[in-house]
Protein backbone atom coordinates (compact mmCIF):
# COMPACT_ATOMS: atom_id res chain seq x y z
CA UNK A 1 0.00 0.00 0.00
CA UNK A 2 1.27 3.43 -0.92
CA UNK A 3 1.21 5.87 2.03
CA UNK A 4 1.88 9.56 1.55
CA UNK A 5 2.23 11.72 4.62
CA UNK A 6 0.07 14.85 4.72
CA UNK A 7 2.84 17.33 5.60
CA UNK A 8 5.46 16.10 3.14
CA UNK A 9 5.88 16.83 -0.51
CA UNK A 10 6.08 13.82 -2.76
CA UNK A 11 7.60 13.28 -6.17
CA UNK A 12 4.99 13.17 -8.95
CA UNK A 13 6.21 12.13 -12.40
CA UNK A 14 3.91 12.12 -15.39
CA UNK A 15 3.91 12.45 -19.15
CA UNK A 16 2.77 15.95 -20.04
CA UNK A 17 1.90 16.41 -23.73
CA UNK A 18 4.22 13.56 -24.63
CA UNK A 19 7.18 14.67 -22.53
CA UNK A 20 8.35 13.42 -19.16
CA UNK A 21 7.72 15.98 -16.44
CA UNK A 22 7.94 15.90 -12.67
CA UNK A 23 7.45 18.02 -9.61
CA UNK A 24 6.56 17.91 -5.93
CA UNK A 25 3.12 17.75 -4.37
CA UNK A 26 1.53 17.41 -0.97
CA UNK A 27 -1.26 14.81 -1.07
CA UNK A 28 -3.87 17.58 -1.05
CA UNK A 29 -2.45 19.40 -4.08
CA UNK A 30 -4.89 19.51 -7.00
CA UNK A 31 -3.73 18.48 -10.45
CA UNK A 32 -4.77 21.93 -11.73
CA UNK A 33 -2.39 23.63 -9.27
CA UNK A 34 0.36 21.09 -9.92
CA UNK A 35 0.23 21.76 -13.67
CA UNK A 36 0.31 25.52 -13.21
CA UNK A 37 2.58 26.04 -10.22
CA UNK A 38 4.93 23.05 -10.33
CA UNK A 39 5.18 22.41 -14.07
CA UNK A 40 4.54 25.97 -15.27
CA UNK A 41 1.85 24.78 -17.68
CA UNK A 42 -0.44 27.75 -17.20
CA UNK A 43 -2.57 27.07 -20.28
CA UNK A 44 -4.94 25.13 -18.02
CA UNK A 45 -7.14 27.68 -16.29
CA UNK A 46 -8.76 27.43 -12.87
CA UNK A 47 -12.28 28.72 -12.43
CA UNK A 48 -14.65 27.33 -9.83
CA UNK A 49 -12.56 24.54 -8.25
CA UNK A 50 -15.60 22.36 -7.75
CA UNK A 51 -16.04 20.80 -11.14
CA UNK A 52 -18.81 23.00 -12.49
CA UNK A 53 -17.20 25.53 -14.85
CA UNK A 54 -15.03 23.17 -16.90
CA UNK A 55 -12.15 25.65 -17.38
CA UNK A 56 -9.56 23.21 -15.98
CA UNK A 57 -10.55 20.24 -18.16
CA UNK A 58 -7.52 18.21 -19.28
CA UNK A 59 -7.08 14.70 -20.67
CA UNK A 60 -5.95 12.04 -18.21
CA UNK A 61 -4.91 8.87 -20.03
CA UNK A 62 -7.00 10.20 -22.90
CA UNK A 63 -10.25 10.86 -21.01
CA UNK A 64 -11.50 14.41 -20.44
CA UNK A 65 -11.45 15.13 -16.69
CA UNK A 66 -11.60 18.06 -14.31
CA UNK A 67 -8.05 18.79 -13.15
CA UNK A 68 -9.52 20.54 -10.06
CA UNK A 69 -11.26 17.29 -9.03
CA UNK A 70 -8.11 15.19 -9.44
CA UNK A 71 -5.22 15.08 -6.99
CA UNK A 72 -1.74 15.58 -8.41
CA UNK A 73 -0.62 12.34 -6.73
CA UNK A 74 -3.36 10.49 -8.63
CA UNK A 75 -1.77 11.53 -11.92
CA UNK A 76 1.60 10.01 -10.96
CA UNK A 77 2.79 7.71 -13.74
CA UNK A 78 -0.02 8.69 -16.07
CA UNK A 79 -0.42 10.65 -19.27
CA UNK A 80 -1.78 14.18 -19.01
CA UNK A 81 -2.58 16.26 -22.08
CA UNK A 82 -3.29 19.97 -21.86
CA UNK A 83 -4.04 22.76 -24.29
CA UNK A 84 -0.29 23.36 -24.73
CA UNK A 85 -0.11 20.05 -26.57
CA UNK A 86 -2.61 20.87 -29.30
CA UNK A 87 -0.51 23.15 -31.51
CA UNK A 88 2.59 21.75 -33.15
CA UNK A 89 5.64 23.73 -34.34
CA UNK A 90 3.89 26.96 -33.47
CA UNK A 91 0.90 26.17 -35.66
CA UNK A 92 -2.58 25.88 -34.18
CA UNK A 93 -4.35 22.58 -34.79
CA UNK A 94 -7.50 22.31 -36.88
CA UNK A 95 -9.84 22.69 -33.90
CA UNK A 96 -8.03 25.79 -32.67
CA UNK A 97 -8.11 27.28 -36.15
CA UNK A 98 -11.85 26.62 -36.36
CA UNK A 99 -12.27 28.45 -33.02
CA UNK A 100 -10.46 31.45 -34.46
CA UNK A 101 -12.44 31.37 -37.70
CA UNK A 102 -15.78 31.25 -35.91
CA UNK A 103 -14.95 33.75 -33.16
CA UNK A 104 -15.53 30.95 -30.66
CA UNK A 105 -13.67 32.81 -27.94
CA UNK A 106 -13.49 36.30 -26.60
CA UNK A 107 -11.68 36.52 -23.27
CA UNK A 108 -10.39 32.97 -23.69
CA UNK A 109 -10.64 31.94 -20.04
CA UNK A 110 -12.88 28.94 -20.70
CA UNK A 111 -11.33 28.06 -24.05
CA UNK A 112 -8.56 25.70 -22.96
CA UNK A 113 -11.01 23.43 -21.16
CA UNK A 114 -13.48 23.41 -24.03
CA UNK A 115 -10.73 22.58 -26.53
CA UNK A 116 -9.57 19.63 -24.42
CA UNK A 117 -13.13 18.31 -24.04
CA UNK A 118 -13.78 18.56 -27.76
CA UNK A 119 -10.36 17.12 -28.61
CA UNK A 120 -11.24 13.96 -26.66
CA UNK A 121 -14.92 13.80 -27.55
CA UNK A 122 -14.58 14.24 -31.33
CA UNK A 123 -12.38 11.12 -31.43
CA UNK A 124 -15.29 8.93 -30.35
CA UNK A 125 -18.05 11.16 -31.80
CA UNK A 126 -16.77 12.08 -35.26
CA UNK A 127 -20.19 13.03 -36.67
CA UNK A 128 -22.01 14.99 -33.97
CA UNK A 129 -25.12 17.08 -34.51
CA UNK A 130 -25.71 20.46 -32.91
CA UNK A 131 -27.71 19.01 -30.00
CA UNK A 132 -24.92 16.60 -29.11
CA UNK A 133 -22.30 19.36 -29.22
CA UNK A 134 -24.49 21.50 -26.95
CA UNK A 135 -24.92 18.58 -24.53
CA UNK A 136 -21.13 18.22 -24.37
CA UNK A 137 -20.76 21.97 -23.82
CA UNK A 138 -23.14 21.77 -20.86
CA UNK A 139 -20.00 20.75 -18.97
CA UNK A 140 -18.45 24.16 -19.62
CA UNK A 141 -19.34 27.73 -18.79
CA UNK A 142 -18.56 30.53 -21.24
CA UNK A 143 -19.68 34.02 -20.27
CA UNK A 144 -18.62 35.81 -23.48
CA UNK A 145 -19.73 34.02 -26.60
CA UNK A 146 -23.24 32.69 -25.98
CA UNK A 147 -21.80 29.38 -27.29
CA UNK A 148 -22.96 29.94 -30.89
CA UNK A 149 -19.43 30.35 -32.25
CA UNK A 150 -18.16 27.39 -30.20
CA UNK A 151 -20.88 25.11 -31.59
CA UNK A 152 -20.14 26.27 -35.14
CA UNK A 153 -16.40 25.73 -34.68
CA UNK A 154 -16.89 22.22 -33.29
CA UNK A 155 -19.22 21.20 -36.11
CA UNK A 156 -16.88 22.73 -38.69
CA UNK A 157 -13.81 20.94 -37.31
CA UNK A 158 -15.68 17.64 -37.13
CA UNK A 159 -16.82 17.96 -40.72
CA UNK A 160 -13.34 18.86 -41.95
CA UNK A 161 -11.90 15.82 -40.17
CA UNK A 162 -14.53 13.57 -41.74
CA UNK A 163 -13.68 14.88 -45.20
CA UNK A 164 -10.01 14.21 -44.57
CA UNK A 165 -10.71 10.67 -43.38
CA UNK A 166 -13.17 10.00 -46.19
CA UNK A 167 -12.60 8.12 -49.44
Amino acid sequence: MKRLDRESRHRVALTLNGREANGWAEPRMLLSDFLRHELGATGTHVGCEHGVCGACTVRLDGAPVRACLTLAVQADGRRVDTVEGLASNGELNDLQKAFRRHHALQCGFCTAGILMSLDAWLESNPAPDEGEVRALLSGHLCRCTGYTGIVAAALDAAEARRREDGP
Partner: peptide
Protein backbone atom coordinates in the same frame (compact mmCIF):
# COMPACT_ATOMS: atom_id res chain seq x y z
CA UNK B 1 -11.02 26.38 -1.97
CA UNK B 2 -8.15 23.97 -1.29
CA UNK B 3 -8.52 20.77 0.72
CA UNK B 4 -7.28 20.62 4.30
CA UNK B 5 -4.32 18.34 5.01
CA UNK B 6 -4.84 14.59 4.79
CA UNK B 7 -2.74 11.44 4.57
CA UNK B 8 -3.12 9.67 1.25
CA UNK B 9 -3.31 5.90 1.05
CA UNK B 10 -3.43 3.89 -2.14
CA UNK B 11 -4.12 0.25 -1.28
CA UNK B 12 -3.11 -2.47 -3.74
CA UNK B 13 -6.14 -4.67 -3.16
CA UNK B 14 -9.53 -4.74 -1.47
CA UNK B 15 -8.17 -6.41 1.64
CA UNK B 16 -5.86 -3.46 2.24
CA UNK B 17 -8.76 -1.04 1.71
CA UNK B 18 -10.83 -2.78 4.37
CA UNK B 19 -7.86 -2.88 6.72
CA UNK B 20 -7.25 0.85 6.27
CA UNK B 21 -10.97 1.55 6.79
Amino acid sequence: MKPALFDYLRPDDEEEVLEAL
